Simulated scan of single mutants.
Amino acid sequence: MSAVIKTATPFALESVLFTALEVSGADPKKVTNTVLQGISQRNQIELGDILTNRKDYNGRQLFRQQGERWVLLHDSDELGANIVSQLADRRYTGVKQFLAQLSLAYDIAYQQLLEQLAEQERAILEEERKNRVEAIRQQSIAKAKSQGYSVKESRTAKGQIQLVLTRTV
């Protein structure tokens, strides 16, 4: 028996997938040389895979990067979404349901990442704006002093900088 399970969301970003797996309770682990040595199903697992705590006939289910996407590798023999009783766990959910839940968690984690990146961009733009204002302020003060003015600086209620230039003759 074989099955093709498609997700509405392609799992493209490793960090977002990792976060979604953690939220889903899949206990993800990135496969390194150290992890690879401690696993009995070593012949099926490659460096860089993401292991989950979900098990089927083949052992632990895992995500492997194939091109731009991460794909769940699993045994598709879940008779009617129920895995055979010796592997059954009351908390086990079928692959289709698991991927649907993971897709939702991935979407949420992706939105959080986008919000974080947008906040970082806003912070960078605000810092650039402050630097620009400070440079103009310094330039204006230097020009006024070079022309013989004394400069008095104050701030308005709106946070604007007001320079009062005076010159005595």
Rank of each mutant, 00 (worst) to 15 (best):
E46R: 15
Q116C: 13
S85P: 12
E115S: 15
E46M: 15
S85W: 08
F18L: 11
K145I: 14
Q147T: 10
A105C: 04
L36M: 06
S15A: 06
Y57M: 13
S2C: 05
S24F: 00
Y149Q: 02
Q66L: 11
D27I: 15
N58I: 08
V164R: 10
L102T: 09
A8E: 11
V31M: 03
Q116S: 13
N58Q: 08
L36V: 06
K143D: 12
T34C: 03
K30D: 07
E128F: 05
S24K: 03
K158Y: 05
Q41R: 07
A81I: 09
D107H: 10
A12S: 10
L104K: 09
S103K: 06
R129K: 12
L114V: 09
D56T: 04
A142P: 00
A123S: 12
V16S: 01
E14D: 13
Q65I: 01
N53G: 05
V31A: 02
A100L: 03
V84L: 08
M1R: 11
G59Q: 00
L163E: 04
P28M: 04
R122S: 14
N43S: 13
G59Y: 00
G148K: 08
L117W: 02
V4G: 14
L125D: 09
A142I: 10
F98S: 09
L21W: 01
